[in-house]
Amino acid sequence: METTLREVIKQITFKHLKKFKGQVFGQNLTGVGWVAGTLPKLYEKDGVIELPMADVANGGMVTGAALVGRRPFYIIRYQGYNWLNCIFIVNYACKSKEIWNKPAPMFIRGLSSEGGLGPVSTSSHISIFYKMPGIKIYSPMTKKEYTNTYRKFMNSDDVFYVSEHRKSYENKIEFKNSIKKNLDIILMPISVTRFEAEKAKNYLNKNGYKVGIIHLYELKPFILKKKWISIIKSSKYGVLMTDNDYVDGIIRTLAHKINEQTNKKVYVLGLKDKSAGYTLETSNFPPSALEIINKIKQIKVKKRL
């Protein structure tokens, strides 16, 4: 049976603890499903550390562990808790190498949901850190991407924020970019919206559109490859980016960077600028395949006018 992303995360964590004597910190780790089944069933003696329910302090304590070279994993169960947990990480751990020549490498696993969990826990919350220096941000959705992200971390002395999605844990497939010259539009989806963007692309291509896709998971530093630039420049309508964070977050910043380098329009679809409730009617969901399809149709119509 093919393994899932969940299994790969578990294996990486096990190796990190046993081979590299790392540590894993977080709240409610050793219960409630062992972090959605991504954590091996280990305890404090093995390096799995249950932290108190003191979110702000905990981020500082993990920074301390990183400063003394334990390369900790820090699990934040809901990315909404970033608001409390990452204060000292972004203001100290991320700056420590540059200011004091004391790196504080850590691997933050921030778990995101995909709507329906109310005002804070519903979605991704990584845009708040995007502007901060010294942080690297990834959002791997596949096994290869996750393994590659971890490998980069082990070859680095930086703070890595890894934006995970519960929906991706069952994933077994790898995504491939689909790009060629003279497309109508190129999708550049981020995180969990990549699954819906794939569906939208397939539908549109079967219905007379020429849609390409570039999957983004290395978000900061963000490098727009030369090949991508030339493909985007040759497209009719430019780019549509999608994300599970607020629409005025990372995607606006990245859209601007892409626009600067290609001189093409870059459209964005993310979470709407509204607070989220708990139901289908009131929550704030990431863009669906249908919304992506409709957006592209709308762009095409507007351009014709």
Partner: peptide, 28 residues
């Protein structure tokens, strides 16, 4: 900051050093 005397610099958020000190002490 001083590496020679194991002194860690402060970033300006008052009391953050208590959290970091505890974490560093625990892990080392």
């Amino acid at each position: 900051n001083s590496n020679k005397i194991n002194m860690f610099g402060h970033e300006g958020l008052m009391g953050s050093n208590a959290c970091m000190g505890v974490g560093a002490c625990f892990s080392s």
